[in-house]
Amino acid sequence: KELVLALYDYQEKSPREVTMKKGDILTLLNSTNKDWWKVEVNGRQGAVPAAYVKKL
């Protein structure tokens, strides 16, 4: 499985998103959308802005 690093804090704004903190390591589930990537963090799945994460 592919991992990404959170470059910034992000507070979810809808139920389809997830909150992450700078430095979090997230499991990347889907990166086909260039703006929003689906990730899993702390057992929750949701979208985060692609510009806020970097593939490891």
Score class of each variant (00 low, 15 high):
10 Y>T: 01
34 K>W: 08
21 K>P: 00
40 E>G: 05
8 Y>D: 08
8 Y>E: 10
4 V>E: 02
8 Y>W: 11
55 K>E: 07
17 E>S: 07
41 V>C: 12
19 T>Q: 04
48 V>H: 01
2 E>K: 10
32 T>G: 10
34 K>H: 11
48 V>C: 05
55 K>M: 12
7 L>V: 08
46 G>N: 02
54 K>M: 15
50 A>E: 04
20 M>R: 01
48 V>L: 02
39 V>F: 01
27 T>I: 15
56 L>R: 02
32 T>H: 11
29 L>D: 01
22 K>V: 08
20 M>N: 00
19 T>H: 05
13 K>H: 09
38 K>C: 15
41 V>M: 14
39 V>G: 00
30 N>E: 15
4 V>W: 07
35 D>K: 13
6 A>L: 04
3 L>M: 12
18 V>T: 06
49 P>H: 03
12 E>P: 14
27 T>C: 12
18 V>S: 02
46 G>I: 10
3 L>W: 13
54 K>T: 13
43 G>C: 08
16 R>M: 14
23 G>P: 00
23 G>S: 02
37 W>V: 08
24 D>S: 07
45 Q>F: 09
53 V>S: 01
51 A>Y: 09
46 G>C: 07
2 E>C: 15
7 L>K: 05
12 E>H: 09
42 N>C: 12
47 A>Y: 15
43 G>P: 00
52 Y>H: 07
45 Q>I: 15
30 N>G: 08
1 K>E: 10
9 D>F: 05
42 N>Y: 09
51 A>F: 09
7 L>W: 03
56 L>E: 04
23 G>M: 02
16 R>W: 15
13 K>W: 05
50 A>V: 07
3 L>R: 10
33 N>I: 05
11 Q>E: 14
42 N>S: 09
50 A>Q: 05
27 T>G: 05
55 K>L: 14
23 G>R: 01
20 M>V: 10
16 R>G: 15
7 L>C: 12
50 A>F: 02
30 N>L: 08
39 V>I: 07
16 R>Y: 14
6 A>W: 03
22 K>G: 04
15 P>W: 10
19 T>P: 06
24 D>L: 04
3 L>S: 08
23 G>C: 08
55 K>V: 13
46 G>V: 09
46 G>P: 00
14 S>L: 07
28 L>Q: 00
44 R>G: 04
8 Y>H: 11
38 K>N: 13
28 L>M: 03
55 K>G: 05
1 K>V: 14
17 E>K: 04
43 G>D: 07
26 L>H: 00
31 S>G: 12
41 V>T: 12
8 Y>L: 11
2 E>N: 11
49 P>L: 05
39 V>R: 00
26 L>S: 01
50 A>I: 03
46 G>M: 11
1 K>D: 09
38 K>F: 15
55 K>Y: 10
22 K>E: 07
28 L>A: 02
49 P>I: 03
33 N>S: 10
9 D>N: 08
16 R>S: 14
25 I>M: 06
17 E>N: 06
14 S>P: 06
41 V>F: 15
38 K>E: 15
31 S>E: 15
1 K>L: 14
7 L>P: 01
20 M>S: 00
1 K>Y: 13
29 L>Q: 04
3 L>D: 03
32 T>F: 10
47 A>L: 15
25 I>T: 06
47 A>G: 08
21 K>L: 08
54 K>D: 08
37 W>Q: 02
